[in-house]
């Protein structure tokens, strides 16, 4: 366990120390949400109706924006080669990196989301559903994002490319995440949506690192 924990701690420490990268993603998240009331108009009724979707879309975009942090720097300075050579399986290293990525993007996004829920006029129950949904769904964002980040290592314009690759894969998370809040507003049960979100993250946990590690090995060839 120790090498994984050590890698996790290193990643988190780097994220905190490298010039406010966490703040950058969070700032983008808040700004993207704030744009919508200015764009569609400040009527509380409309905002309440689409609020959850807005927050989820903004979370997706913020997650995509932070993907290049996963492997690019380590690829550039050779750290990734050392990781691949270490006794730790590359899949495990990917899991540790994803966990750190989630702890520094998905988790802060989920913690910040109640505030944004208030901004778009959601009620208390919807806000709770939004935050829980983000907590359950964002691990899948980090894990699937790792595949795209690994595939686009060394590509021309990797940022645009990885968003093109990964956003179609993110759709189920968006659908069930926003669907949970919507079902809560409509009076139905939000439970199935949340369960599916959790299932999606749990399914991505063993599968995505395998694909991401395969992509990393090719990038290092």
């Amino acid at each position: 366990m120790t090498p994984y924990l050590r890698l996790f701690r290193r990643e988190v420490r780097l994220a905190f120390r490298q010039g406010g990268e966490i703040g950058l993603a969070l700032g983008f998240f808040v700004l993207a949400v704030v744009l919508f009331p200015l764009g569609v108009g400040p009527e509380a009724e409309i905002l309440r109706r689409i609020g959850a979707g807005i927050v989820w879309v903004a979370a997706l975009l913020a997650a995509v924006l932070s993907l290049d942090r996963l492997f690019a720097a380590d690829h550039a300075d050779g750290g990734l080669d050392l990781l691949a050579l270490s006794a730790m399986p590359l899949e495990g290293a990917v899991v540790a990196k994803c966990a750190a990525h989630w702890a520094t993007t998905g988790l802060p996004l989920a913690i910040l989301s109640p505030l944004l829920g208030l901004l778009v006029g959601l009620d208390a129950r919807s806000i709770a559903l939004l935050a829980v949904g983000l907590l359950l769904g964002t691990p899948a964002l980090s894990l699937l994002g790792a595949i795209a980040a690994a595939l686009t290592l060394g590509a021309r314009r990797p940022g645009v490319l990885s968003s093109l690759i990964v956003l179609p894969l993110y759709l189920p998370v968006l659908i069930f995440g926003a669907g949970a809040v919507e079902a809560g507003i409509a009076g139905g049960g939000a439970r199935p949506h949340l369960l599916l979100l959790g299932a999606f993250s749990l399914g991505a946990l063993p599968l995505a690192p395998i694909a991401a590690a395969a992509a990393l090995r090719q990038a290092l060839d």
């Binding site: 060394g154 021309r156 690759i165 090719q218």
Partner: peptide, 17 residues
């Protein structure tokens, strides 16, 4: 993705994954 790399074989393998 296939066309995003200067090294064509890298693009092909990334596309396969």
């Amino acid at each position: 993705l296939v066309n995003a790399f200067d090294d064509m074989s890298r693009g092909a393998r990334a596309g396969s994954v």
